[in-house]
Amino acid sequence: MDQASGLNLRGKVVLVTGAGRGIGAAIATAFAREGATVAVNYLANEEAAARTVVACQAGGGDAWAVKADVGSEPAVQAMVEEVAREAGGIDIVVNNAFKPYAFDPERRSRFDDLDWRDYQAQFDGAVGAAFEVCRAVLPHMRRRARGSIVNIATNLVEHPVVPYHDYTTAKASLVAFSRNLASELGPVGIRVNCVAPGLVYPTQGTQNTRESFRESLMAATPLRRLARPEDVAGPVLFLASELSGFMTGQVLFVDGGLVMR
């Protein structure tokens, strides 16, 4: 099976942040289906995390839930230590967690309504969390002289269909953060890449988008639909695996061709 897919993720240890629901849960389950051991990080919804764990196990992999606020340095340190203790190391990290954000094209905040604190909060949520998690896992990855980090951004960084100022600015910073890290860690054998989905439906954050808006987005999308959480998982698995062993600092857009570059 491994040989056939070439992903070779069997037995690999993966930490997926924000994996209780939505995209994170889909990513975790996809890793488990390839035989990986998945640490399912969640912030508060224990039940959702437990459902992800069950889905992972049903998929043939191993998983367990780890509660931690990825914005807190001690919490992240403790989580990573636990993962390492439990599974003997960390091969792959997917930074998927982000600060809750209401995606609503009609009721979005206009620039004039925003406070610098809104930007700050989104920056902390996107870049701050990735920073804490990377800091904590790097010693483990260095020890093996290999590792793969995948950060979840958004296609809005290239094409702000809806100007979610604070959110998108923070995600654009996450892309730059990833590229700098890729540049520094390349020489020690650790890769850092991003996956930038378009509007993913359904997720908790996108439930409030209107059908008409979604229809218009689909009409503008070459592949004529919206991304499902599982669509995001494929490129994440690819970037995590040795199939992309010579790629780092890249952003893969998963939006049906809405953004082409």
Binding site: R142, A145, R146, P187, V188, G189
Partner: peptide, 12 residues
């Protein structure tokens, strides 16, 4: 220690 990491990655 970081030099050792660089050396390891070059050996890879």
């Amino acid at each position: 220690r970081a030099f050792a990491d660089y050396l390891a990655a070059e050996l890879v």
